[in-house]
């Protein structure tokens, strides 16, 4: 996968970075993600994934967020 490929956030490898391009969730969920700083254009680093369908830990805006698997799978990122 080269640059500019758009993938699902949970497909991002640990310690890899991406830029959010799209959030495909309901109104409330989108708003919650937006308010935690995840808006289109935001750079995120995937720090780690929990086992199985566990949550993902992201580094974003110099702080760490944990997002449940279901919600994370609604975020699409561009590899940078």
């Amino acid at each position: 996968m080269g640059e500019n490929t758009i993938i699902n956030l949970i497909e991002l490898k640990e310690n890899h970075e991406g830029e959010i391009v799209l959030i495909k969730a309901g109104r409330a969920a989108t708003q919650r993600l937006n308010e935690m700083g995840l808006v289109p254009g935001t750079k995120v680093k995937l720090v780690r994934k929990g086992p199985l369908r566990g949550p993902v830990e992201l580094e974003v805006r110099n702080s760490h967020l944990v997002i449940g698997y279901g919600l994370a799978s609604k975020i699409y990122v561009k590899i940078v």
């Binding site: 969920a29 949550p55 830990e57 760490h64 967020l65 997002i67 449940g68 919600l71």
Partner: peptide
């Protein structure tokens, strides 16, 4: 609902 949480240091 799914989890969104800040992870404190």
């Amino acid at each position: 609902y799914d989890l969104i949480m800040e992870l404190p240091g």
